[in-house]
Every structure is written in structure tokens, then in C-alpha cells.
């Protein structure tokens, strides 16, 4: 995007940038069409005008975060404890993101409780336990192989007795095409409602920033099983751009809330649409 008129070369290079950022063909075509429409009146917009239009059009596809009225790491007053359930396919960064989130909430003065409802993967409980120690927040757990719904129930009941502000429940990674595992997730979600009728208040889907077009199917299937309400994209500290999230957010109308930019406790940021769009164009 370095030319003074929107000719085919400009659009070709725009296509290349978008596709190689994992935006996907469909969404890329939509973006290009929207830009063509906007410049149709004036074929000769200059580079900086084009850049502005481009950023606006892409940002418009990213769903607005509706609980923007409460500040970052603040919680709605009428939801206590505020229950967050974290879901996603294998290895995307769920447990690590929970550790980082717990740290942010704690730093914001909130009382946090974590729940180790990944009872399946080898040493998943120990991994979250180390994070809980790092952040210095309580963890509720059972033995490996125990019922994840039962862990979730215990976690909420402990959080209520401790008068906690926020509960974050980890779940085992699972591929979205495994029906039994997806049903299990629905069960984990439902059991929480025995203690907190409107829980979970937030279902946070974690997407790996290096994932390609399969993220669409992940988001669809997890939404079907659990009504995903927000997303986080991890591993954006690498060379992958995470562009698939633009189309995913647009299709499902689910906002991206956080990004992961490393393995350390501080490596979580609140999602910023403009910065994200800029990062696609290498700025």
C-alpha cells in the first residue's frame, strides 16, 4: 500500500498482506470490496487517505466490546463472584492466559479464585497450581481424572464462601469436532448455575495467533456448545499476525478482549483494534 492511486497493483499488494496475515479469502474480498466502494467516487485517493480508510474498514469488522462501560479488569457490581470459563482447542494458551489474567485482576485489587477443571491432560493441574502460586491466589482442584463439572462446582462454592470477586475456571483443551468432549463442556457450564444462576458470566475462547482458517470452525463449535462471549488471541509475540480473528469476530459478533504476547506473567494486553490493524501492515 504505497501508491497514490487505487489501481490493481495496490489492491493486489493489499490482497497479499491480508492473506498472508491469515485474514482468509472471504474476509479479504469483503475488505477489498468495501474499499473499492469507498474510493469509487474518487479513484485518486492518496496513500495516507487510503491507509485511513483501510484501517477504518477493517476495524469496523472487529466486534465492539460491550462491557466497555466497566474499565479494564473492573467487574460489574451486580455479579459477584464474576465467573469466567476459559475454553479452546489443545495447546492454544488457556492455562497461561488464566495465570496472566489472575495477575491483572489481583493487581486491580480483586479477590481471585482459580479452578483446575482440566483433569485430563498430564500435569495440567500442577501447571495451573504453579501459576496460582506465582500470582498468589487460591486454587481449587481435585485429582487427575476426576469429573471437571465437580471441580467447577467446588470452585464456585469455595469462591462464594471466600467472598471472591472473580473466579476463573480452566478447562481441558479439546478439538471442536469431538462431540463427547464438547458435551462435557456444556455440562461444566451448566453445573455452575446451581450455585450462581447466571454463571458463567463470561466464556472466553482462546485462539492461537498462528492458527489459520480452522479458527472459524473452532469459534463456531465452541459457541454452539457454550455461547462464547469473548476471545483472546495468544502468541502474537511471534511472526504470525492472527488476522483470522477479523472474520471470526465479524461473523460471530464476539469481541476480542485480550492478546497474549509472551509466556511471562505480564505478557497480556487488553486488545486494541487500531494497534491490531496496524500490526497487520507491519507498523
Amino acid at each position: 500500500v504505497g501508491k497514490t492511486k487505487v489501481d490493481d497493483d495496490v489492491l493486489d499488494s493489499l490482497e497479499e498482506v491480508l492473506i498472508t496475515s491469515d485474514v482468509g479469502v472471504d474476509t479479504t474480498i469483503r475488505i477489498i470490496e468495501r474499499i473499492e466502494e469507498r474510493v469509487a467516487r474518487d479513484r485518486y485517493v492518496n496513500t495516507s487517505e487510503l491507509n485511513v480508510i483501510l484501517r477504518e474498514e477493517i476495524a469496523a469488522l472487529l466486534a465492539e466490546n460491550e462491557d466497555n462501560q466497566v474499565g479494564d479488569f473492573e467487574l460489574p457490581k451486580d455479579k459477584k463472584p464474576y465467573v469466567i470459563m476459559v475454553v479452546g482447542v489443545n495447546g492454544v494458551g488457556k492455562t497461561t492466559t488464566i495465570g496472566k489474567l489472575a495477575h491483572k485482576f489481583k493487581a486491580a485489587g480483586k479477590k481471585v479464585v482459580l479452578g483446575a477443571a482440566d483433569t485430563f491432560r498430564a500435569a495440567a493441574i500442577e501447571q495451573l497450581e504453579i501459576w496460582a502460586e506465582r500470582v498468589d491466589v487460591p486454587l481449587v482442584k481435585q485429582k487427575m481424572g476426576s469429573d471437571p463439572a465437580s471441580v467447577a462446582y467446588d470452585t464456585l462454592s469455595s469462591a462464594i464462601s471466600k467472598d471472591a470477586d472473580v473466579v476463573i475456571v480452566d478447562t481441558a483443551g479439546r478439538l471442536h469436532n469431538k462431540v463427547n468432549l464438547m458435551n462435557e463442556l456444556t455440562k461444566v457450564k451448566n453445573v455452575m448455575q446451581k450455585l450462581v444462576p447466571d454463571a458463567p458470566h463470561e466464556i472466553l475462547l482462546i485462539l492461537d495467533g498462528s492458527t489459520g482458517q480452522n479458527a472459524f470452525e473452532q469459534a463456531k463449535q465452541f459457541t454452539k456448545a457454550t455461547e462464547v462471549s469473548s476471545m483472546a488471541i495468544t502468541k502474537l509475540d511471534g511472526t504470525a499476525k492472527g488476522g483470522v480473528v477479523i472474520g471470526v469476530s465479524d461473523q460471530l459478533k464476539v469481541p476480542v478482549k485480550y492478546i497474549g504476547i509472551g509466556e511471562g506473567i505480564e505478557d497480556l494486553q487488553v486488545f486494541n483494534r487500531e494497534e491490531f490493524v496496524d500490526s497487520l501492515f507491519g507498523e
Partner: peptide, 12 residues
């Protein structure tokens, strides 16, 4: 490598 990897597979 994760089979779900997108465009970044070549770089890595």
C-alpha cells in the same frame, strides 16, 4: 508443528 497453523508455517 500444529496442523492448524496458517500462513506463518513457512516462516517457522
Amino acid at each position: 508443528v500444529d496442523a492448524m497453523t496458517g500462513q506463518d508455517a513457512v516462516n517457522t
